[in-house]
Simulated scan of single mutants.
Amino acid sequence: MQNERMRIAVAGASGLIGSALVRSLTADGHEVVRLVRHAPRGADEVRWDPERGQVDAAGLTGCAAVVNLAGAGVGDRRWTETYKRRIHDSRVHGTAGLAKAVASLDEPPRVFVNGSAMGIYGETGERVVDEDSPAGTGFLPELCVEWEAAAAPAGQAGVRTVFPRTGLVVARGGGAWGKLFPLFRAGLGGRMGDGRQYWSYIALHDEVAAIRYLMDHDELSGPFNLTAPEPLTNREITEAMGRVLRRPTLFPVPAPVLRTVLGEMAGDVLGSARVVPKRLLESGFTFAFPGIEDAVRAA
């Protein structure tokens, strides 16, 4: 698939990763079809309603690949029960609807790339985990298990299905680092909690490159951790941010403050996830920005 010009459908095309992926694909001459919630404004848009699991399957006709990166932002707001339901439904119902649409096509796509997250492993402490490790317990791990399972109709229809389990994306435009960069530039950055928790990160450039790599290699299927080869502690990342941005990192954020401000989501900021991309490395993928300082500079 690497040298072909393809028609590719992308759900979540306006998000941090989705918009970067669309830019990369269109720059290489591919035709990108965006899944949108409003009435389509042209041939490059397809109507869908992820929470209800509804997709205009006809709009996917001719697509060689379908990429699903849609979902309500996990870090966008405090986790009320209502918002947790939205996080769940936007992913699980959206994936189920898209997988069924893919399976219904007379000529289905060659690959279905369905986003997932390293949150599937939950709290791992200092233990290194890879794709063979079991899922954890709690809201995010259980969500990720259900999210990946919802893609089953595509696999049952013979469509190669891939699950990129994404780590913390180092980028200015959104996600965790979108909130960290302004703090560090203002000299207000610091470790979170005791700083000993592992953060498994990935540069946005490598995230997009890895997704495209998974799309292009017909022999690859199943889960792949999209994280840099060597996770670092929050303290190590904080120190690296200070060095690259040339700012002091003197203001640690105590765990009780994070719990007060973030509520249940603070568990993921303070929790430790030491996730490595075993399958991606074994397949031959090469990271452009494997180190944290490289990743921060790239952002």
Rank of each mutant, 00 (worst) to 15 (best):
I87G: 12
I87C: 08
I87M: 11
H88G: 02
H88I: 10
H88P: 08
H88Y: 15
D89H: 11
D89S: 14
S90D: 09
S90G: 10
S90I: 11
R91C: 08
R91Y: 06
R91S: 06
H93T: 05
H93M: 13
G94F: 04
T95F: 03
T95A: 07
T95K: 02
T95N: 07
A96H: 13
A96S: 14
G97M: 03
A99Q: 10
A99M: 09
A99P: 02
A99V: 05
K100D: 13
A101C: 13
A101I: 05
A101L: 12
A101H: 06
V102L: 07
A103W: 01
A103M: 07
A103F: 00
S104T: 00
S104C: 04
S104D: 06
L105W: 01
E107L: 13
E107D: 13
P108S: 13
P108N: 09
P109L: 06
P109V: 11
V111F: 02
V111A: 11
V111C: 05
F112Y: 14
F112K: 10
F112H: 05
F112R: 02
F112P: 00
V113C: 08
V113Y: 05
V113R: 02
N114G: 13
G115A: 15
G115F: 02
G115D: 02
G115I: 04
G115K: 05
S116E: 10
S116W: 06
S116G: 11
A117L: 13
A117G: 15
M118Q: 12
M118I: 15
M118P: 00
M118A: 12
G119R: 07
G119D: 11
G119W: 02
G119N: 06
G119C: 10
G122I: 07
G122W: 08
E123W: 08
E123M: 10
T124M: 06
G125A: 08
G125Q: 00
